[in-house]
């Protein structure tokens, strides 16, 4: 009896998640009356704005990942090594972006860095890009910090640091040759999550008026019927590919025990 109930719950859950996806995919294939076709996809992929905005968002994602790694790895390492008592506070701070809506953050940014402020970042496209990258890094912070901190927990950070020091290594060498390679899997999983967040982000990019993928999806959605569904499927595929890549790099890590 319990087994039947368990299966029923599972099937209900799967339908709940899968039906909208199936419906959306089905709709995205129905542009041509009466037959399934990839016309909607063709239309999306042949739109130059798709490639422009997608390229922009990928570049922003890469920049965000690099900045996030350089910010989070040394911080999490230092907190574990020297300031363990501060960890709960740092964790609280890294969770704030989940509580504070992106729209609040971006309005704060605009107030602080507008053209009549002491640091007019929004005055130039490059400055606005920078601001957007900081915003993305903030949004990704909870995931990146948690991933890296979990990775560091599997290491004996203190002893490895001392071993490297006794062999003559300075802080740079310790961070980039000892700590970073050993938390690489964690960093990569944080990186793919960051990528997925940045690709789909709408609020910040729209309010800062940057040509990102999120606002493009919105514009397309407001003006077309079939293309938005095709675009949503593409965005899903990208996110899932990221998840798959996390799994893949975890498996390919050759210096960790298989299955551990």
């Amino acid at each position: 009896m319990t087994r039947v109930l368990a299966w029923a719950a599972l099937i209900f859950g799967m339908l709940y998640f899968l039906l909208p996806l199936v419906g959306m995919t089905e709709f995205s294939l129905s542009m041509r009356r009466g037959v399934y076709s990839l016309d909607a996809y063709g239309s999306v992929l042949s739109d130059p704005r798709f490639w422009e905005t997608f390229g922009y968002s990928v570049a922003m994602a890469v920049a965000t990942i690099v900045f996030g790694v350089l910010l989070v790895v040394p911080t999490a390492y230092w907190v574990r090594l020297k300031l363990p008592w501060i960890r709960p506070y740092i964790e609280f701070v890294t969770l704030l972006p989940l509580v504070i809506p992106a729209i609040v953050i971006v309005f704060g940014y605009i107030r602080l860095y507008n053209t009549s402020s002491w640091l007019p970042l929004t005055g130039t496209p490059m400055g606005t890009n920078l601001l957007l990258m900081f915003g993305y890094a903030t949004l990704a912070l909870p995931y990146m910090y948690r991933a890296v901190d979990t990775g560091l927990r599997t290491l004996d950070v203190g002893t490895l640091t001392e071993a490297a020091q006794s062999l003559g290594a300075g802080w740079g060498t310790i961070l980039f040759r000892v700590i970073l390679p050993n938390v690489l899997v964690a960093v990569l999983s944080g990186a793919f999550l960051t990528f997925a967040i940045v690709i789909g982000e709408f609020t910040m990019a729209a309010l800062l008026d940057r040509p990102a993928f999120g606002p493009f999806m919105q514009i397309l959605g407001a003006n077309r019927a079939y293309e938005p569904a095709a675009l949503a499927v593409i965005a899903f595929a990208i996110t899932w590919a990221c998840m798959g890549l996390i799994q893949l790099v975890t498996r390919l890590q050759k210096h960790t025990r298989a299955g551990a």
Binding site: Q165, N182, L184
Partner: peptide
């Protein structure tokens, strides 16, 4: 500082660098 003393140390917990091979570990210093 510890990295300026040229003093070798062996720890109870081995503390080998998990991402490096045996030869790379020995060659680290």
């Amino acid at each position: 500082r510890p990295n300026q003393r040229n003093v070798g140390m062996v720890f109870q917990a081995y503390a080998l660098f998990p991402n490096l091979t045996v030869a790379q570990n020995v060659g680290f210093g």
